[in-house]
Structure formats: structure tokens, C-alpha cells
Design a protein around this nucleic acid. Sequence first.
DNA 1: ACTGATAATTGGAATTATTCCAATTTCAAG
DNA 2: CTTGAAATTGGAATAATTCCAATTATCAGT
Lengths: 153, 153
Amino acid sequence: MMLPTQAKQTLESALAEHGLRSTRQRECVFAVVAASMDHPTADAIYSRVRESLPGISLATVYNTLETLVSCGLVRQVNFEREPSRYCPLSEPGKHHAHFHCTRSGKVFDVHLPESFMKDLEALLPPMFRIDKVDLCISGQNRGENPSGHVEPD
Amino acid sequence: MMLPTQAKQTLESALAEHGLRSTRQRECVFAVVAASMDHPTADAIYSRVRESLPGISLATVYNTLETLVSCGLVRQVNFEREPSRYCPLSEPGKHHAHFHCTRSGKVFDVHLPESFMKDLEALLPPMFRIDKVDLCISGQNRGENPSGHVEPD
DNA sequence: ACTGATAATTGGAATTATTCCAATTTCAAG
DNA sequence: CTTGAAATTGGAATAATTCCAATTATCAGT
């Protein structure tokens, strides 16, 4: 897993902003998450990262994921009490929700337009300052999959 | 903790619909949750229930909460990876979100109007059948509390 | 390059909410 | 009452995550 130069810049400046160093481990974990569209768990990330960094420890994967989340590069997603999943967070201003198919276990991103976020904000008492919004929808995907044909997952 | 006759009816019929019996333990756990506006954890519910049923086990509290959730009487609420919290679910058709104050730890219900739920549905690919929506907003409550005066939690 | 100070990583132990399980108790119906 | 199913119980087990002390890597200043 190699990190494109541009992504490397992104990582390094985000870390620097928080007074943190860029390391091989952080680069690699970031590269794996950035390349993963399937919302992997820490464990799955661990095994993917080990393909390029066999000696990395699970503790470091957890530490790094926490670091990346706090730098705003990665998002942690929780469904019920399942193990946390992680996804890349490219544009900081853009919000997305998650659809969790209870049949297949797959997770889909759902883009949330600015208008929707505004509506949501309007529903809250005005003195509640929003830091984070977690919206998870679960159900079953009975539709077309990306390959274009219909199947029940 | 005594359960009002009407609530008892609700519980008994909901349980009966699922082929389940009403028991002292279930009545009491239900009564505690129904009377709790603070979104208690299983542990908190356990200690409240023990005031009327000192011999109840934590396992039963967990079992019962699961039962009540599956009967649609109680809602399980998760913030990040914190212990699950529970709240009464009076009207089955009515949706609400949760605002989690990161300063005080308090949880507030946020009513979601039907129009908002419709908007949300419209954002999803049409073949996604929604079973459940979990919306958690976290941030800080800098506003008036129910007693009417302003304080920083 | 070298050195010291600081930060990051590591392996393994610890934590903790929750689930599991086998044994007992309760319940409702015949 | 008896009997079979359902519910409860205490304690053990699970599993994701966090903690910790020891090692290793990195950076800044010489």
C-alpha cells in the first residue's frame, strides 16, 4: 500500500497542525483507510496494513486510527455495539450518513446536502452547539448493486 | 417502583403479541425505564430496579431490556462506544433523535417531524428499505436548562 | 554525524460492557 | 397436583478496546 504524494502532503500537514509526527505506521494506516471504501474495522485495517508493514502492532493501529480521527482525516462509524468501522473523510465540510444493510452487512455512504443539515440544526434548541452528527440508517438493500443487476444481496 | 394500570396493559399486550409472559422482573424493569427521562445505562437501571426487586440479576436486566426493545416498548441508544442507554418509546410512529452534551453527559430528546423523516428517506437510493434510523448529535449545551436559568452545565 | 529530549511503537496485561450457559425456579394449562 | 415450556440466576466467558511499562524512532541543536 503506497500513499500518493498528494495524500502524503495532506497527512503530514494535518499531523503537523496537531504537533504530531508522520511515521511509517501512520502513513500506512492512513493509506489503507484512504483506499478502503468498505468501512473496515480496526481488525481488518490491521490485517491490510500488515501486508506492507508486517511488524505493526494492533495497539498502534488503534492509536493511529484515534490520531487520524482527531486530526479530521478519518471518520469512526459505529452501528449499535458492533466493532467500530472507519472511513476516509476527504472534504471536511461535507457530511455523510451511513446506510447499514442488515442482510449483507455492507455499508453505504449517503450524501447529506447542506439544506438537510440546516433543517436538522433548526430542530435543535438554539443553544445546543453541534459538534458532530452521527446518522445511521439500517435496513435492507433490495435494489441494484453497483454492477448494475438486481439481486437480494 | 409501581407500574400504572395503563402501562401494565401496554406491557402485557406487547409481550403477549410476541408470545412472551409478563413477569415481576419485566414489569419492574419496564416501570423503571418508563419513569426514567435521563437515558440510563443497563447498570443504572439495574440499581434502580433493585430498590423494588433486590434479588434481580444483572443478566435479567439485560435480557429484559432486549425483550422490551424487541417488543418496541423501549429504545436502545448508543453514543460512540459508551455503554448502551435506554429510553421509553411511547408512540411507535414518532421518531426522535438524541442530543448528547459532551460537557455534562446529559442526553436530550429531539423530536423529528414527519417532514424531516420524509426528506431523509428521499436522500436514500429508492431500493433501500429503512428499518431504523439512529440520529445522534453531540455538542455542548450552552443554553437555559429546564429550571429556566442559564448556566454552563 | 552525535546526543538528549520527546514522541511513537510494541507486546502483553487489563478493562469492561455484554453475552453465554447450565442449573434452578416460575408459570400456565391440563 | 403435574408437567413442560419459559424465565431467571450466578458466574464464567467473550471480545473490542485501552492501558502500561519498556523499547525504539525521530527531531533539533550542536
